[in-house]
Computed example of a mutant assay.
Amino acid sequence: MLAIRLPPEVESRLEALARATGRTKTFYAREAILQHLEDLEDLYLAEQRLADIRAGKTRAVPLDEVMKQHGMED
Rank of each mutant, 00 (worst) to 15 (best):
L50R: 14
D64N: 11
E11N: 11
Q48I: 05
V10K: 12
I4F: 01
A20R: 11
I53W: 09
L63G: 00
R19F: 04
R5I: 07
T24S: 14
P62Q: 15
L50N: 09
A18W: 05
T21I: 00
E9Y: 05
R59A: 14
M72C: 04
P8T: 05
R23Y: 05
K68A: 10
M67T: 07
L37H: 08
L2Y: 04
M1R: 07
Y44W: 05
M1W: 05
R13W: 05
P7Y: 13
I33P: 00
E11C: 06
V61P: 00
L6C: 00
Y44V: 09
P8G: 02
A29M: 09
K68C: 01
A32P: 04
Y44D: 10
Q69M: 12
D52E: 15
K25Y: 02
R30D: 10
I4N: 01
A60Y: 13
R54W: 06
V66W: 14
R30C: 08
F27W: 13
R49P: 15
R23M: 02
L37M: 05
R30L: 10
E41V: 09
V66Y: 14
T24C: 04
R54A: 05
Y28S: 01
Y44A: 14
A46E: 08
L40T: 08
G71T: 03
A20Q: 10
H70D: 05
G56N: 03
Q69I: 06
T58L: 00
R23G: 01
A46Y: 07
V10S: 11
G22K: 06
Q35T: 10
Q35G: 03
D42F: 10
D42M: 10
V61R: 14
A60K: 14
V10T: 15
L45P: 00
T26L: 08
I33H: 02
R30E: 12
E31M: 12
F27I: 01
L40M: 11
G22M: 02
L2D: 01
L2G: 00
V66K: 12
L43F: 10
R54T: 07
E38F: 03
E38M: 06
P8D: 14
Q69H: 11
D74R: 14
A20V: 02
P7G: 13
Q48C: 03
D52K: 13
P62Y: 12
L45M: 08
L50H: 08
D39S: 12
R54C: 01
G56F: 01
